[in-house]
Amino acid sequence: MNMKKSFIFLFIFLLLNLGGCDTGQKTFEAQSADDASEISQKVAEDAEKTVKELDRVDDATAVSNKKDVYVHLDVRGFDRFFLKDIRKEAKDKLEAENPDGTVEVSTDKKIELELTELKQKLSDQEITRKQLEDDLKKVDKDLKAGV
């Protein structure tokens, strides 16, 4: 009798726990899926569009986190003599359109590589917001490094 009760008890116990695990699993998945897919890059996309309107900018790559955006400008040819000017022009224009967040502009090749990689991860939804923040901190550090 005791054995049977124990068995039933164990059975119910397992049933409840596995059922519980299942629910827990679903919630956990939903959270991380939401996290990865909801990192909206609207601010970045707008920034890219804005900046590409500039005459001297040939291409742009941008990644955003909430309202902060990091933009790389691709400038080719003789326009490259005026990179400092172009960076200022782009930054002013972006800050006018995005007064709530920080804007960082770069023409450094390394930043382009880092932002392109981040963009890829974001579109593949392989990155969490925390990872994005950490990676952008690195981008920020690289942007401000050097003499």
Binding site: D108, K109, K110, L113, D142, L143, A145, G146, V147
Partner: peptide
């Protein structure tokens, strides 16, 4: 210089 930018952790400025 390009090699240092692509394969190591250097930026255009620090390379």
């Amino acid at each position: 210089q390009t090699g240092y930018i692509y394969y190591f952790d250097f930026t255009e400025k620090t390379a």
